[in-house]
Design a protein around this nucleic acid. Structure first.
Lengths: 205, 205, 205, 205
DNA sequence: CATGAATGAGCCTTCATTCAT
DNA sequence: TATGAATGAAGGCTCATTCAT
């Protein structure tokens, strides 16, 4: 059946959509261009996706699933304390963006894009990403690593926002000139982790 | 003459555009609905703006100018050290968003929106906002309030990103249930300021 | 009263309309550009003309009246035989076009233009021009200068068509490079007059 | 593939455009009406033509190609001297107009129409038509049939202009009352051919 | 008389989606 | 499954015309 997730053609279309959406933005992207880049007929897209919105959503979920899987693999392999794990998460996030600029641009620019997307679509994968991060933060608060007075949801949003904005800047910048992204990741992690640490666990003290 | 910036009708159209763009998103918004909300004819919009894109850009510039003016007024009145001034900036930013949810939604959702907007349009007002913030950060670094090892441009982007994301969340949330926004602002300021402080100037130590 | 024919402002508008219609063509010309060129407000045009179509018609009539007056003056002063008078007419027509290229372009390009103009508007001035020419032709036929077998209406249309097309070519050409228009007029007159002459009156025999 | 010249749907659209442009004039014609007459959707027109202007140009080229092909077939079959061939050309031109009044009206009214068409578009097919005619004229001059003093380009324009104007008149007239078109063609040919003949070759002498 | 800002009907064009093959 | 020609709803924009000043 055409709709199954593993279909090779479905992947080709998602690949093409990522490329085209990153380049033109969702609303300026034409379904026919996605088809052209994917090497399929326009109509074929509708065998795998309900409509253009569905293509956006499924693309987002597909990529977020991948990111979350990578994230959880990474975290399982990282034994350290919660602060260290947040540092790992930031680095991974930055590495992924560095390795796949189209994906970075797609996430940073299009995630908030359509009001439909933001307001109506629940966006479960994104929420799960935040959930994973929030669990670490709350574990850090229970363990005395992170100040308990901070609202964990707020910390999480702040981390994501800072990461997202920095990556947007880095991605757009790196397309023209080269940037030392690793150092940026380090500094960003320093900034955020020091911000949430308790006096005892703080690096710069 | 009809086209001058101060025109009352131009303001009505910008007001309406803000409302409609915030509600529907730029690409889903219809010029005719902006006209209807503004109480003018469709064609009237084209007396004041070149096209729909131009309306978006001018709306953005108009609102950013206002925000920057408010910001600079506030900073002039705030005598404190750079860290204190950043705290003031964060509070003002949050207050503005709280006071004008349409504006908050417009900025948080639409600023990155069109690829044209992000990639081609220089967006001078936004850059000036960042510039103001960066000046404070660098002053703080020179004065020993902020760790000099951090890249000021990165800090600035991180602050803006965290603020922006938190406001997006707060705005969308506050439309349904009520949220203690002042406390959120406080915590966000704590997080970010502690993150960049030197050990001597840190609050939580 | 504003509508009277002699009004200086009315003349300014007609002048401007001729210029703009010649340059852009009637359908591509904007009323507001005619107003701008005339140095009046858009609305002023509607004090003197019912609408854009009416402006076209009145412009045409105004110019044709002038042409016909010039033509009749010329013919009264020309004592020669009918063939000679037709030659004079052709030269005058060409001279007028040479002297006022906008008028030439307007007549050659726009006269047939709007189907409304061609099919509904009677165009009395143009018909009078043809009438004047036809009278000469028929006089020539009665006097044995022109072959009586030819339909005078047909001769008249053929002369006008040949003249019109040649002038269109000359006008468009003379805008770029210079052309010996006087010689062209001579040759055209030779061609047409020899074509209609009886053997006795023919020049080239 | 949809876009190839031979497409049956493309022909249907050209047919419809000819009819609608002839009836209303290019600028008063609506694309949607062309679509309706062609029995296709509005959008279909844009699969075959870039825009409304392109439809006009391609229609013109398509019909001129046909006319030129017919003309050259006819001339190949006509053994006579150059004057005789010009007579044949005039008759063919008139016959075509008689047989397809929409085409006649389209050519006579719309050819000069849009300033774009006249001033910017090169109009190669029309120039080829004139070229064919000019070749005959110059052959006639070399062979002593046509007075060598006449500028061949001028003769050609005069013939075309006379033909065009007469056909405009005939076409508009024949839509209401009936006219003896064959006789008109004969007389027009007589007029023009006698006008350019040398004394030796002239019919009426 | 004159102005010109405002109007709004109307049209070209786009492009997501369908469906006969 | 796959195709891609065809569809037609929808909307940005123009510009002739109006009318309050």
């Amino acid at each position: 059946m055409a709709r199954e997730k593993g279909s090779e053609k479905r992947q080709r279309i998602l690949e093409a959509a990522l490329k085209v959406f990153a380049e033109r933005g969702f609303y300026n992207a034409k379904v026919s261009e996605v088809a052209r880049v994917a090497g399929v007929a326009d109509g074929t897209i509708y065998l795998y996706f309900e409509n253009k919105d569905d293509l956006l959503i499924q693309l987002f979920e597909d990529r977020m699933e991948y990111i979350i899987r990578r994230l959880q693999d990474e975290l399982e392999r990282t034994p350290g304390d919660p602060l260290e794990r947040i540092r790992r998460l930031i680095h991974l996030h930055v590495d992924l963006a560095l390795h796949d600029p189209d994906l970075a641009e797609f996430i940073t620019v299009e995630l908030r894009q359509s009001s439909k997307f933001v307001k109506e679509y629940e966006n479960p994968q994104f929420l799960e990403y935040l959930r994973v991060l929030r669990d670490i933060v709350e574990e850090g608060q229970r363990g005395g690593f992170i100040r308990p007075g901070l609202d964990s949801r707020l910390i999480v949003r702040a981390i994501f926002g800072a990461l997202d904005e920095v990556l947007l800047t880095l991605t757009l910048a790196s397309r023209s000139r080269s940037v030392d992204v690793a150092m940026s990741a380090d500094q960003l992690a320093d900034l955020l982790i020091d911000g949430m640490s308790t006096p005892e666990t703080r690096l710069h003290s």
